[in-house]
Design a protein around this nucleic acid. Sequence first.
DNA 1: CTGAAAGCGCTTACAG
DNA 2: CTGAAAGCGCTTACAG
Lengths: 341, 341
Amino acid sequence: MTLHSPARRVAPTLEAVAAEAGVSRSTVSRVVNGSEHVRPDVVTAVTAAIERLNYVPNRAARSLANRQTMAIALVVPEDTTRFFGDPFFSEIVQGITQGLEDSDYVLNLQLASPSAPSEKTIRYLLGGNVDGAIVVSHHSGDDFFTTLDATIPVVFGGRPFHPEAHENSFVDVDNRAGGALGTQYLIDLGRRRIATIAGPENMQAPIDRHQGWIDAVTAAGLPTDLVVHGDFTLASGAAAMRELLDRSGEIDGLFVASDLMATGAISVLRERGIRVPEDVAVVGFDNSSAATSGSIGITTVHQPSREMGVEMARMMLAMLRGEHPERERVMPTRLVVRDSA
Amino acid sequence: MTLHSPARRVAPTLEAVAAEAGVSRSTVSRVVNGSEHVRPDVVTAVTAAIERLNYVPNRAARSLANRQTMAIALVVPEDTTRFFGDPFFSEIVQGITQGLEDSDYVLNLQLASPSAPSEKTIRYLLGGNVDGAIVVSHHSGDDFFTTLDATIPVVFGGRPFHPEAHENSFVDVDNRAGGALGTQYLIDLGRRRIATIAGPENMQAPIDRHQGWIDAVTAAGLPTDLVVHGDFTLASGAAAMRELLDRSGEIDGLFVASDLMATGAISVLRERGIRVPEDVAVVGFDNSSAATSGSIGITTVHQPSREMGVEMARMMLAMLRGEHPERERVMPTRLVVRDSA
DNA sequence: CTGAAAGCGCTTACAG
DNA sequence: CTGAAAGCGCTTACAG
């Protein structure tokens, strides 16, 4: 083994195992794949041979023969910074990983650009490299992912932007009801100048949350003009808060479309000496770790991110088994009251 | 196309393209792989046929034939929460992604447990699924990753724990020098009771940073007993700070092994009404986004995380090309002065 | 410069 | 229950 290029072992093949065990390749293959129809003592012999040679099946060969890759793409159409910066994704990914744990599938990360997927991503997804794709975020104008299921099964995290255009499978929460829930809580607290920091306008979830805010605020006869949009980053939450404050000093309630943005907003309120929740009561969305890691516990609309990830994995596995799971799975939200409202 | 199982297109093969273009499979293969020895007009014809049929090579078949997968594993032996929670990883991954951008390789994420890799991860890495592995974190006691290069090329982010045991390739900074650099800055500021929040004791980088702190503090004739260990999470930084404060109230300087832990520490100092930097000057490590996203800009030891990722990708690509890049690449650190010290 | 043919390491009807 | 054989879709010497 030289310094720069260790001699690499040659992996043993099915053939070698067959020879070692004194059976045919077919039989070894059956044992490897857990077929019922093999004599117990033969199974034992083959298993021992596999053990001795430290045999691991060659995935490419297997893929080619049975047309399955045993891989699922985790597609993230977001900037790396946002993907890593928002604990929401962390929880979704944990859920997906957990849901796939007992399966033989592995997850292949595809960081895609938020606008249009790269040629490389497209070739990868279309090139038979994965058996299915889980897309954890979707923006308007992106047709590639919504039509991808003509080629491989696809499950979306969150209803894709134009659900009517195509029948995609997805796991989501009722964001509109959630938005109304969080806002109504502020109304019930007696707040009357309730602003919102909404999310990006090219994604379905924030649009629905915003609509939920409008629903609640309208029903209460309150104004609907206190709106600024962020892009789901902490910094954008802070910037939106500044803009809101500069525009109108009389805010007493705030519904924010994500806990991370709420964290940014709260830090600006504190900077300006505005007390939370006394002067401005703040309700976030997600109930991600961002809601509890700041200086004040954020009252928020909980969405079961981790369970959503598990559900996405479950739906994908069902589709890969050839079953027909429900096309949409909408999970419940609930309010979690902490200190910010 | 029915609701639950859209009819999936059958992908065209090389064979089909050959027929369409009126040439042999060999020729199509040559064109696809950019061989020099094909007549220009034939190239044109084949390219057109590829275009018409929307041909994408089957990766499994290609892999099987040329024994390359064109995939690199990104192995993260960390809890998902920590991986997603620390901006340092985000920057490393961005760098790796960037370094691979112009190559034909794709990145396959393998979240592994920090202790021992799962059977699934082992089979994956050993099963010919990837051409190489980039391991972005390494803990003591883990022999699997350090010996993995007997099978495939491996590049570590950060010197692996027992470098002497095996000749692994890695990209790193001089953590010891960096630790001394940050600590010396505190000393030069006139601080005399300088504590450190060190990182986990089963990783090389934090051990070296801790040693750097010892070096500087010892050279200045200052005490070396003000040490508490965290685990690189924000919460552990806060907990460590509390412990330090409870143990000794006289601290006037603090060197923390990561910006994220420094953020946690600073929030505790503020809670207790201790001013930063007046009462306690704080120096972090990383210069990640955590250093600038909190209430106060953190003075920190910069490590070029993104460039390190790029370098890791570059070394990996070189190894995959059969070249012999330098085995270790140690990049410079430098002090970035902000408000916390 | 181009094609026929072997081979990569599996799976899977098909016989027996 | 087991094996011989074809086939998955490519690449790559080998001839020409």
